[in-house]
Design a protein around this nucleic acid. Structure first.
Length: 688
RNA sequence: GGCAGGAUAGCUCAGGGGUAGAGCAGAGGACUCAUAAGCCUUUGGUCGGCGGUUCAAAUCCGCCUCCUGCUACCA
C-alpha cells in the first residue's frame, strides 16, 4: 500500500472559484479518489492563500479587517468545492498558527544554512495609500520609447522590460498620485547555492518534460537570481521573526501552507507530521497550473531541501481553461463562476467533461459548450446509463441470474481492461482512460441489441434467457461505473444502491454480481438541457457587466478574481480616487463630440489597436487608433455612436496618425466599456 | 525581445517512420427495450507552409507562418 499526500495549488482569497480553477481541483480530486479505490492511503490537503498586498488593499477598500475578508472567502471557496464533490481530507489557511510555525522552522533552516542575505532596494511608495507598490500597481511613460500609460514592468508598445523605478512620470494605480522613491531593506534567499541540486532534481522525471525544458533553458542556463522573500510594512502576512518590520512575501508562505494544512490534519487524526513530510515512505504529489511552475519546481524544492523536508515525488502541471476557444470573458458571459454553474447544472457533467479532455501534458483545455452538452449526453446518458435503463426493469422481480451466464467473453474482457485503464488514471491521462471506458461501452450496447431482451420478454418460456441477458448487461454496466467512479461519485453511489452493493474498490470490477435482487430502477442521470447552459451564460454575462477594478488583472483562467457582488461596493472608487479639482474653463478646453463609427478595421500587426474611422457629420471624419481590440470585434463596432475627444493633438503611431480618442470606462484589456449617447444624439453634437 | 508549447475531418481530439483514426455533427437504413437513447451502413483530411534525411515522413531535422502561455519585488 502506497502512502500519498496530494495537494492542489492554494486558491487566493481574493475572489470566487471559477471553472478555470476547477480544472485543477477536479483533476486532483479524481486522482485522489482513484488512488483510494486502488486501496492506497491517500490524503488530499489544500488551504486558502490569504496573504499579500491585494488582500490588504481590498480589505481596506471594504473597510473591514483582513481576517473577516479571508474568513468569508474561505467559507465561499469550501462551499463551491463541496458542491462539485471535491473531497479534501483537510482544508486550512495560510493565516494559521500551524502555517506560521512551519514558516519559522524553514526560515531558521535557511538562516542556519547562510542562505539569507539583506540588500537595500529602491521601490516606489504611494504616500497617500501608505504602501509600497508592486509592479502592477504602477503605470507610467516608457523610458525607452516614450509611450504613455504603460505597465510597471514592461512596455506594451515597444516591449522593453524595465523596473517601475525607471518609468518616466510614474503614477500609482491605487491613488492616482505620483509615488516617491524609497529605499528599503529586503531579505533575499540565495537560491543560486542550490543550482546544482535543482538542475539535477528538475531533470530527473519529477516534472513534466515541457517544464523541465523550460527550466533548463530559461532559468538554469545562467546563475539563479536571489529570490526576494520579504516585504516591508505595511503588509498582510507574517512578520519575519529576526527582521522586525519586514514580512514574508506571500509566495514564501503559500506553499508552506501545504505543510501547515497537513500539520492540522495530523493533529486531528493523531498522526505524526514527520511521517508525511520527512519520511521517504510518503509520496508527495502537487497539482498546479503552468503559470506557477517555477515557484513549485525551483524555490519550493530549494526550501524543502534546505530545511530537511521530503521533496515532491511528482509535480503534475496542467494548462489553462478557455471557453469556446477564447479566454474566459465577462462581457461574453464565459467567465463562469463555480457557484453560478451549480445553480444550473449537475457537477458530474463537468467532472466527466474535464476528465475526457485532460492528459498528463501541459496543454490548455477548451470548454466548448456545444460539445459539453453532446459529450455528456452521448457518452454518459446514451451509452453508459442507457445500459441499465434498458434492462434493469426486466429483472426487477427475477433479480440477477444465480450463476454468471455465458456472454462470449465480454465480462472477462471488461475486467481485463481494468489494469490498462488504471494505468491511464495513474499517469494523469484521464482523457485516455475515458476513451477506453467508452470503447467498452460501445461493445456493451451491441450485445443488448443482438440479444433483443424486448423480444425475449414476450415469450414466457424464455424468461431464463431474458434474465441471463439482463444479468450480463447490468454487470457490464456496473463494471463501467466502477471504472468511472473516481470521476462520477454520485453515479457510483446510485449504482451501488441499484445492486445493493456499494462501489468502493477498483477490483470489484473483477467479479460479476449474481443471484441477488435489483432495486427498482429510476433515472440515474438527467440529460444536459442546453437551455440551462444558455441561461448560465446569460446570467454570467449580465452579472459580469459591472466589473470591479482588480478584475482588470484577470487574464487567463486560473488567475485570482474578486467577487462580482463587490461591484458596487465602492471598491472601484476607493482604488482609483477622484482626480484633483479643475475649473469649468479647464473642462471646456476638452471638446467632446458625438461621433459615428463609419469603419472599423483590424490592424493585424497590432496587439491592442483597432483602426476606427469616425464620422462627425457631413464629410468630416477622423482616423483614430483605439486600444480596444481585446474587448470589441471591429464588425460589432461599425455604425454605433461613441463619444470622442475631438481636439486632442494628433499622435503619430506605428500604424498611422491617430487624430483623437474615444472615451471608454474600465481598466483595459477585454474589460473595457465604450460610452454611448442615448438615442436621439447625432454625430457632431458637443458633449458637455 | 527571450523561453516553453501547440497547429491532424465541420467541431473536440487520439496516433507518432510502413494503406490517415475515434467520438460528435452530416447522409441513408432497419429496429422500438431505453431519457428522440441504442444498432447497422456511409460522406468528410495533400496531418499549418517550404526544404532536408530516408526505400518510405503526419511522424525525424531545419527554416517560416499563425495561436497560447510564461518572462523571478501580481497571485
Amino acid at each position: 500500500m502506497r502512502q500519498l499526500l496530494v495537494t492542489s495549488a492554494l486558491p487566493y482569497a481574493n475572489g470566487p472559484i471559477h471553472l478555470g480553477h476547477l480544472v485543477e481541483y477536479l483533476q486532483t480530486d479524481l486522482w485522489v479518489r482513484f488512488q483510494k479505490m486502488r486501496g492506497h492511503r491517500a490524503i488530499y490537503v489544500c488551504a486558502d492563500d490569504t496573504h499579500g498586498t491585494a488582500i490588504m488593499i481590498r480589505a481596506r477598500a471594504e473597510g473591514r479587517s483582513e481576517a473577516s475578508l479571508i474568513a468569508e472567502m474561505s467559507e465561499a471557496h469550501q462551499r463551491d468545492f463541496a458542491g462539485f464533490g471535491i473531497e479534501f481530507d483537510h482544508y486550512g489557511s495560510t493565516h494559521s498558527e500551524a502555517c506560521r510555525a512551519v514558516c519559522h522552522e524553514i526560515w531558521a533552516a535557511l538562516r542556519k544554512a547562510d542562505m539569507v542575505v539583506e540588500e537595500e532596494i529602491d521601490q516606489l511608495f504611494d504616500t497617500e495609500q501608505g504602501t509600497y507598490l508592486a509592479d502592477r500597481f504602477v503605470r507610467g511613460t516608457c523610458p525607452k520609447c516614450g509611450s504613455h500609460d504603460q505597465p510597471g514592468d514592461n512596455c506594451g508598445s515597444c516591449g522593453a522590460a524595465y523596473s517601475p523605478v525607471d518609468l518616466v512620470d510614474p503614477v500609482s494605480t491605487l491613488s492616482g498620485t505620483r509615488p516617491e522613491l524609497r529605499r528599503a531593506t529586503h531579505l533575499f534567499v540565495r537560491i543560486e547555492r542550490m543550482h546544482e541540486f535543482l538542475a539535477g532534481w528538475t531533470q530527473s522525471g519529477t516534472v513534466p518534460p515541457e517544464c523541465a525544458n523550460y527550466l533548463k533553458n530559461y532559468f538554469l542556463n545562467e546563475p539563479l537570481r536571489d529570490w526576494d522573500v520579504s516585504r516591508p510594512a505595511p503588509y498582510f502576512g507574517f512578520e519575519i521573526p529576526d527582521s522586525p518590520g519586514n514580512y514574508w512575501y506571500v509566495w514564501f508562505d503559500a506553499p508552506i501552507g501545504y505543510i501547515g494544512a497537513t500539520a492540522e490534519w495530523c493533529q486531528c487524526q493523531g498522526e505524526t507530521l514527520d511521517d508525511w513530510w520527512k519520511s521517504e515512505k510518503t509520496e508527495i504529489h502537487h497539482f498546479i497550473g503552468k503559470d506557477i511552475q517555477y515557484f513549485h519546481t525551483l524555490f519550493w524544492p530549494a526550501m524543502l531541501k534546505t530545511a530537511g523536508f521530503r521533496l515532491p515525488t511528482q509535480v503534475h502541471i496542467h494548462g489553462f481553461l478557455t471557453v469556446d476557444g477564447e479566454k474566459m470573458s465577462k462581457s461574453r458571459g464565459t467567465f463562469l463562476r463555480a457557484s453560478k454553474y451549480l445553480e444550473h447544472l449537475d457537477p458530474e457533467y463537468l467532472r466527466y467533461y474535464y476528465a475526457t479532455k485532460l492528459s498528463s501534458r501541459v496543454e490548455d483545455l477548451d470548454l466548448n459548450l456545444a460539445e459539453f452538452v453532446a459529450r455528456v449526453n452521448s457518452d454518459l446518458v446514451g451509452k453508459v446509463v442507457n445500459l441499465a435503463s434498458r434492462t434493469a426493469k426486466f429483472v426487477e422481480t427475477l433479480g440477477l441470474s444465480a450463476e454468471y451466464p455465458e456472454d462470449g467473453g465480454l465480462f472477462v474482457h471488461f475486467a481485463e481492461r481494468g489494469e490498462e485503464i488504471a494505468e491511464a488514471y495513474e499517469n494523469g491521462d484521464f482523457g485516455k482512460a475515458m476513451r477506453m471506458i467508452m470503447e467498452l461501452a460501445d461493445q456493451a450496447n451491441p450485445y443488448v441489441e443482438e440479444k433483443a431482451p424486448w423480444a425475449l420478454r414476450k415469450d414466457a418460456a424464455r424468461s431464463r434467457e431474458l434474465q441471463d441477458v439482463c444479468t450480463v448487461a447490468l454487470n457490464l454496466f456496473r463494471t463501467l461505473v466502477i471504472y468511472l467512479a473516481p470521476v462520477l461519485p454520485e453515479l457510483a453511489r446510485k449504482t451501488g444502491e441499484l445492486f445493493d452493493n456499494p462501489i468502493v474498490r477498483w477490483d470489484q470490477a473483477k467479479t460479476p454480481l449474481t443471484g441477488r435482487p435489483i432495486a427498482r430502477f429510476s433515472h440515474m442521470m438527467q440529460r444536459v438541457d442546453p437551455a440551462k447552459v444558455e441561461s448560465m451564460v446569460r446570467e454570467s454575462r449580465e452579472e459580469g457587466s459591472a466589473p470591479s477594478p482588480s478584475e482588470a488583472e484577470t487574464a487567463a483562467a486560473g488567475a485570482s478574481h474578486p467577487s462580482p457582488t463587490a461591484a458596487d461596493s465602492g471598491e472601484v472608487l476607493a482604488a482609483n480616487p477622484i482626480a484633483p479639482q479643475i475649473t469649468i474653463d479647464e473642462f471646456l478646453k476638452i471638446d467632446l463630440r458625438v461621433a459615428r463609427i463609419l469603419a472599423a478595421d483590424e490592424v493585424p500587426e497590432a496587439k491592442k489597436l483597432v483602426r476606427l474611422t469616425l464620422g462627425l457629420g457631413g464629410t468630416e471624419t477622423r482616423n483614430v487608433f483605439a486600444g480596444i481590440k481585446a474587448a470589441y470585434a471591429p464588425a460589432d463596432l461599425v455604425g454605433r455612436l461613441v463619444v470622442m475627444v475631438a481636439n486632442l493633438a494628433p499622435r503619430q503611431m506605428k500604424f498611422g496618425l491617430s487624430e483623437g480618442m474615444i472615451v471608454a470606462a474600465g481598466p483595459g484589456g477585454d474589460d473595457l466599456y465604450l460610452l454611448s449617447p442615448d438615442e436621439g444624439a447625432v454625430p457632431g453634437q458637443r458633449v458637455g
